[in-house]
Design a protein around this nucleic acid. Sequence first.
DNA 1: GTCGAGATTATTGTACACGATTGAATGGAG
DNA 2: CTCCATTCAATCGTGTACAATAATCTCGAC
Lengths: 149, 149
Amino acid sequence: MTKPIRLNEQLCFSIYKAQKQFNHFYAQALAKYKLTYPQYITLLSLYEHGTMSVKEVGQALDLDSGTLTPLMKRMEKDGWISRKRSTVDERRVDVSLTEKAEMMRDDIYEHVGSCMTLLNLPEESYVAIKESVDRVDGNLSAIPDESLN
Amino acid sequence: MTKPIRLNEQLCFSIYKAQKQFNHFYAQALAKYKLTYPQYITLLSLYEHGTMSVKEVGQALDLDSGTLTPLMKRMEKDGWISRKRSTVDERRVDVSLTEKAEMMRDDIYEHVGSCMTLLNLPEESYVAIKESVDRVDGNLSAIPDESLN
DNA sequence: GTCGAGATTATTGTACACGATTGAATGGAG
DNA sequence: CTCCATTCAATCGTGTACAATAATCTCGAC
């Protein structure tokens, strides 16, 4: 007598769908800049920390080089960032913002900020939900892979 | 004086990361069945509703045929489902479960169920968080694309 | 000074995800 | 009965994701 698993009662499915909605939301909001969501968070990270190596961006975003290298090549082609091998340590590739990125900074902050108000969630709810999701994330990452065999 | 956007305070980023953690969690939990997460939810949907058209699966999972067609071809090759054109309406392709899928059903329910206990979230929290995430999803989907230009 | 273990980035292969387009099939409106 | 707008699956192009592997580099042991 095994209990069936109903899709619409699964937290993973809710998060899966919410992530896609956010993706769509940002696709619209960022269309005028021709940025995708992963490109946008890469940009945010650089705005926040300044020039970083690919490795450091990967740690900030929880993405590996297999994702970041092609993504950053596209961002370089679109004039958002420049990439060059560090002269100090030639294994590293330093990623820095272009003039264009610096110039667009406030515009992007402001536009995205105003779009976010349309989400229509009171500040306390927003923070509370975020903390809940972070807890789920934390609990998940604490599970050793071997225990799932 | 534009307020900077801090990545680690963004709900979208928390959900983005949690989704990836769930993906990793299910990649481990489903490895013995050689199923990915999207394949697993396709299977769940068929367990729940029986034979469905591609369109109906797409509505249940919020995915389009561009994603589902290749995914289902892989699932067919791996012996989970069979696909055939409806004789009633030849635009439709009916997707049904194989013997193998029916036989594995309880095994999968049980194994995934036991993995879920490792998430270590009390039932009330689980439900409350899920409802919060669903609300965010609902609010997002209510935003008209044009208002984000 | 050279060598090799370990670290770091790039590349490759597989699998989503989705917008846009295509082409076959359907079912009304007239 | 015949157009023709609509529906549906498949296809194509672009862009993530990530595991696995390859290529490159650093630094400490000697």
